[in-house]
Amino acid sequence: MTKKKFTDLVLESEKTLYRVSMSMLKNESDCEDAVQTAILTAYEKLFDLKREEFFKTWLVRILINVCNKQLRFRSRHSEMTDDIGETSLGSEQIEVRQALDKLPPKIKQTVILYYIEQFSVKEIKQILKIPEGTVKSRLSKGRELLRLELS
């Protein structure tokens, strides 16, 4: 893959990278750090990517790993830097985001990847490295909980 192709694919994935990192880190500054690390890591590990059509799935997986590492570092150092950044959002956006934030973390992650980022069940299985049955049960539970929360 050429550098130009890599750049194009990253830019195409920018919105996804933003939403996934914000859903996990909830802090603009941490998201900016995480996405830089993820992009540089992905470029170094390009030889790991077997097929170009899996680029987005693969890049999201790297980003989730980077975000998880940042969350572990954050909890170890007791940094409470959650910055929901809701001031610029409308009331409906805030309501939806708060409903999502109330979901158990693993269910929230799966719901976001499926309903917002529109990854398939199979792709989510590869990103999160969980069985297909688990993806489906998390989505089902997520639907129920969001329905209760947003109704």
Binding site: Y18, E28, E32, D33, V35, G85, V96, R97, I116
Partner: peptide, 16 residues
């Protein structure tokens, strides 16, 4: 759901 997190901020785009 898709509007929950809005568009990438300028700061995020700059980092990319």
């Amino acid at each position: 759901l898709m509007i929950a997190y809005g568009e990438p901020t300028d700061g995020f785009h700059h980092s990319v």
